[in-house]
């Protein structure tokens, strides 16, 4: 997939990843090439075990590739050290997982502020206002002081979406974000991701098994045996 008029915000070339013990290692990613552009939503689909999540974690710098290069916002991060990768995750990448992974001891506002605390580029009051704004945008403006474990599953996942956007990252990576939700909440969470990506000009990459969700993305990337088959424009 090439969109030559713009620079990709996330790019990988010849990505290989092996998992497991050296004796029984599995070649999961077999030379994946990919470019993501701002303002677009991408869905990765494919059978279980084809390497979708491994690719997402590798692109999200939670995992290291064995071969190949990754460029985030034009910066080659393939050989960057642990601290640099962590900083890039904080500043450039927002994650949404199948489980919300909110910190139950914190309120919804505080959960959203946690990535901002780490980045430390805003004053506390500004962080709080931004957290409230994000909660408003995911429809939870009235639950700013609610402890995270006092929310329903759908609400928790919406807070997780808001948290992923906390530092206004150019990239949002979502691993089965609706996998744990009912149809209604799945639609709400996907719509949020989709609309916010458009509004904030972010690239959103979603790993999903849900064909309906995939169809509503701008692009569908079909994966099989560790490589993309044919790119397909959806939407």
């Amino acid at each position: 997939m090439t969109q030559t008029d713009k620079k990709p915000v996330l790019e990988c070339k010849g990505l290989h990843r092996y998992l497991g013990d050296p004796e029984q290692r599995v070649h999961v990613l077999k030379g994946v090439d990919l470019q993501l552009f701002r303002g677009n939503t991408y869905a990765i689909v494919g059978p279980s075990g084809c390497g979708k999540s491994t690719l997402l974690y590798t692109l999200g710098l939670l995992d290291r590739q064995n071969e190949g290069t990754i460029l985030v916002d034009g910066i080659d991060v393939s050989k960057s050290n642990e601290d640099q990768r962590t900083r890039i995750r904080n500043e450039k990448i927002g994650f949404v997982f199948q489980f919300h992974f909110l910190l139950p001891e914190f309120t919804t506002t505080e959960n959203i502020m946690i990535p901002m605390w780490k980045r430390g580029n805003r004053k506390t009051l500004t962080m709080e206002r931004r957290a409230h704004m994000l909660l408003q945008s995911v429809g939870l403006g009235d639950k700013t002081e609610r402890l995270a474990n006092r929310l329903s599953g759908g609400e928790q996942q919406r807070v997780a979406v808001a948290r992923a956007l906390a530092n206004d990252p150019p990239i949002v990576l979502a691993d089965e974000p609706t996998g744990n939700l009912d149809v209604k909440n799945s639609n709400i969470v996907f719509e949020l991701l989709y609309q916010l990506s458009k509004r904030n000009n972010q690239a959103v990459l979603i790993v999903t098994h849900n064909p309906d969700i995939a169809r509503r993305c701008d692009y569908i990337l079909k994966m099989r045996d560790g490589v993309f088959t044919t790119p397909e424009s959806a939407g």
């Binding site: 999200g60 939670l62 642990e82 962590t86 995750r89 904080n90 997982f97 910190l103 946690i114 780490k118």
Partner: peptide, 16 residues
């Protein structure tokens, strides 16, 4: 462990 993992994924270093 999950909270630690999420902290790490959102930018908290091993030192943090």
């Amino acid at each position: 462990t999950r909270e630690i993992a999420i902290l790490r994924s959102i930018g908290y270093t091993r030192r943090d």
